[in-house]
Design a binder for these strands. Sequence first.
DNA 1: CAGAAAAGTTGACGTTGTGTCACGAGTTGA
DNA 2: TCAACTCGTGACACAACGTCAACTTTTCTG
Lengths: 222, 222
Amino acid sequence: METETQKTEARPGAKPAGKREQTKVQNRQTILEAARQVFADLGYGATTVRDIIRATPLASGTFYNYFKSKEEVFQAIHDESALRIRPRLKEERAKARTIEEFISGMFLTFFEFVVGDEDNFRAIQRNTDTLRVRMDTPEVVAGFDELREDLEKAIDQGVFPPVDADYMMAMLVGVAFEMAERMLRRDDHDIETAATFATALFMGGVRNLPHRKVTAVNGGPA
Amino acid sequence: METETQKTEARPGAKPAGKREQTKVQNRQTILEAARQVFADLGYGATTVRDIIRATPLASGTFYNYFKSKEEVFQAIHDESALRIRPRLKEERAKARTIEEFISGMFLTFFEFVVGDEDNFRAIQRNTDTLRVRMDTPEVVAGFDELREDLEKAIDQGVFPPVDADYMMAMLVGVAFEMAERMLRRDDHDIETAATFATALFMGGVRNLPHRKVTAVNGGPA
DNA sequence: CAGAAAAGTTGACGTTGTGTCACGAGTTGA
DNA sequence: TCAACTCGTGACACAACGTCAACTTTTCTG
């Protein structure tokens, strides 16, 4: 037994960390991890709550102590994802001194995130009762709000031309997600090239785009 | 599955149009219509096959004479949609003499289609198990292939700069769908403005976008 | 035009998945 | 050490699924 683990004046930042609290956190994480995996494998629609449970050592009833439905785990995964990528995106935007930096930073960061944890993105992206869910969770909403604010700030500061933030966001998000999906679908992990293309579109339109992507590159990204 | 009736001598071009054949077509249409409605209302994930049936005068078993699952009706709706919009898009592309015409034609046509039959788009878009249009139903696949061909042809003819067709498609599709969704979400039916923005992006990037400020709708979903 | 064959409809039924709950094992704190 | 409490457990009641044998309607045949 961990007789050691008494709740003596614990470390400052640490949690209460009773044994109880500890397994609770663990279980939640276990379920989330299993769900991510199963969703990525079977697709959201095809997986049952029991599939998720079966991928853990837990009993069926336990699931419902942590999430009240399949949809809720899904949202949790979503939320966690947003939580992870938000600061990265925000930092990137803060660093940006020009529109180009702003935009390319966003794309690169996003693509890195997607390719860096493919299963995670597959889990939330390949399936879903779609946008409704994507937009609902607090972290996700906060992330979009943040982007919008920064966009408007950049516009005010003259870094960005005075475009409509709504349309702008739709375009950024649309391109980002569609390209990400396409990359995963084709097992294309070349995030630099993808970001280069996307950025070029926003910087100067079609005429500005690099020429055909040479798959086995010799020239490298323009 | 289409066991053509082994009639000794059916009319040549016309439909067989026996009473039987007729109600068969009717029933299929009834179910499709009901499904479109219910999907649009409840969302794909939340609707049950019984919900669809209940919205028709038919019995539960009958559903399965026409579609083998909820997913299959969904695909059928998808397919039908693609069937309807494909020729319109193709025609638009054929008419185009410049890149700008090509692009703005696509956006306008698509937005018209979406706003013109909102329920239909809601049914297939707001829900789904594979994100976006990517149900690989024949008509949908054909539609994308067509677009790609036309794109490549335009590139060969020098109307389009020699961009990578893959990326190009991802960008077009991404922007089109995301903007469409956003419009429906905000009850914004101004397809001209939307098309203008999207086209401007593709023609000259952010700096080229109209400076119009629009509705000060609050950020956030719904 | 009757009667048989074919095609289609129907709803009850076996099956699978969902979410709850009473119980008991494990943990905490005195 | 023991009472109080928390959480894990799996059986259960309920909901939706998809099938199928019986039945109805249409079509075919003589």
